[in-house]
Computed example of a mutant assay.
Amino acid sequence: MTPTDFASTALPLYSIAELRAIEQGAMRDLPQGLLMQRAGQAAASAALKLLHATEDSDAGHRRVLVLAGPGDNGGDALEAAAHLAGSGLEVLIWLAPEAPATSPEREQALSRARNSAARLLEAANSMASAAVGAAPWHLVIDGLFGIGASRPLDGECRDMAQLVNNLACPVLALDVPSGLHADTGAIDGVAIRATHTLTFIGDKPGLHTANGRDYAGEVEVAALAIDPALLPPANAQLGGLHLFARQLQPRQQNTHKGSYGSVAIIGGAQGMAGAPILAARTALHAGAG
């Protein structure tokens, strides 16, 4: 294995505050609602890719559950639902309880979803949870809450998250799994456990730290055709083996354990022997004498 096997660029990670600034800059130069429409189209494409990757090739009879929250994350989900319904899939939209006021972009997305072939089910409907739990879903799209969530999941949204976590089908989270903090990866109470996350504009540290790796699943970034000039230099990056490529130089065959240096590890207070043992094993497998 050579350093070229790990050739790659570090992936930038952006905080919630940085992403908000990027969004505001992008929306100043775009028609109203276009960024949400791009997110919805990207989400629909990712959903179709997941559906086509399963064994059953008859995608026309697949059933997709879309969870749409009261904010712009819900708007992204509504846009995706309209696209998927237009593709001939059976789509059910579970509408979370409405916020006192929603953005004009989300209202437009809701109107498009209502005018599509998708079926809408209000959270307040007493039969909503029973209908969701009883159906055999091929995919769930989580668009309840994104990076703007300011409190733990509660009420109907908490109940729905728990119900979805008991389903056997793939779950595609939009931007971040609902209930997971985009900056820290922390969960306060309940979060949706996704198998895949399509995150928008840029990657988030919370998808790769703390609970993030267990709840986000496979992470893909949809840049939404944002002007690269709007992206600031990242204060954090997602690490990988490529960062250590210069240490992985090809070795000569005529060498021995002393040719590449030795490592001495000192530690192991009573009950604390695990750390030096792990360090010693790492040094051994890295090739030190």
Rank of each mutant, 00 (worst) to 15 (best):
D175P: 11
G86P: 10
A26K: 04
D183N: 15
E18T: 08
H181S: 14
S87L: 04
G261A: 13
L238V: 03
M127D: 13
V140Q: 10
C157R: 07
R251T: 04
S259M: 01
I192K: 09
S262T: 14
T54N: 12
R158T: 04
L13D: 03
D29A: 03
G146H: 06
A47R: 07
G206D: 08
T9R: 08
M272K: 14
I277W: 04
H196R: 14
A222D: 09
V66C: 13
L198M: 13
L78Q: 06
T9D: 07
A47F: 09
A81H: 08
L84Y: 12
A123E: 00
A229K: 01
E98A: 15
G33Y: 05
L78I: 04
Q237E: 01
G146V: 05
I192C: 11
L78V: 05
E23N: 11
D29E: 02
S259N: 05
I93E: 01
L65H: 10
A101S: 15
E90Q: 15
M127W: 00
A273S: 15
G189N: 14
Q24C: 00
L163H: 03
A46S: 15
G33T: 09
L207P: 13
K204A: 10
I93S: 02
K49Y: 07
K49L: 12
L284H: 14
S178R: 12
L67T: 07
V66E: 13
R20Y: 00
M27V: 15
V221D: 05
A42V: 05
A7Y: 01
A39S: 08
I141D: 03
A26F: 05
G202V: 09
A269G: 15
T195C: 06
H196F: 13
A234H: 04
I22L: 13
A229R: 02
Q249S: 12
P152V: 11
A131P: 00
A131G: 00
N115M: 02
E218G: 02
R151Q: 11
R119Q: 14
P233A: 10
R193D: 04
Q237W: 01
A168E: 11
A101Q: 15
G239Y: 01
A135L: 10
A194H: 11
D175A: 10
S8Y: 01
G179T: 03
I22W: 06
T209R: 11
L172S: 13
R213T: 09
A99C: 00
N73H: 08
P12T: 07
P276N: 04
Y14K: 01
L153W: 02
R246A: 14
H52L: 15
F145S: 02
P3T: 00
P100E: 01
T4D: 11
H242T: 00
L207D: 13
L231E: 07
P170N: 10
G217E: 05
L92N: 02
S178T: 12
L120E: 13
H138C: 14
G258K: 03
D142K: 03
P250W: 02
A279P: 05
I277A: 12
R251K: 15
G33P: 06
A59R: 11
T255Q: 08
D5Q: 08
G274Y: 08
S8H: 06
E105D: 15
T255F: 02
R251C: 06
R119V: 08
E79P: 01
L180Y: 10
H208D: 03
H256Q: 08
W137H: 06
G261H: 12
E55Q: 15
Q162K: 10
A101V: 14
R251Q: 11
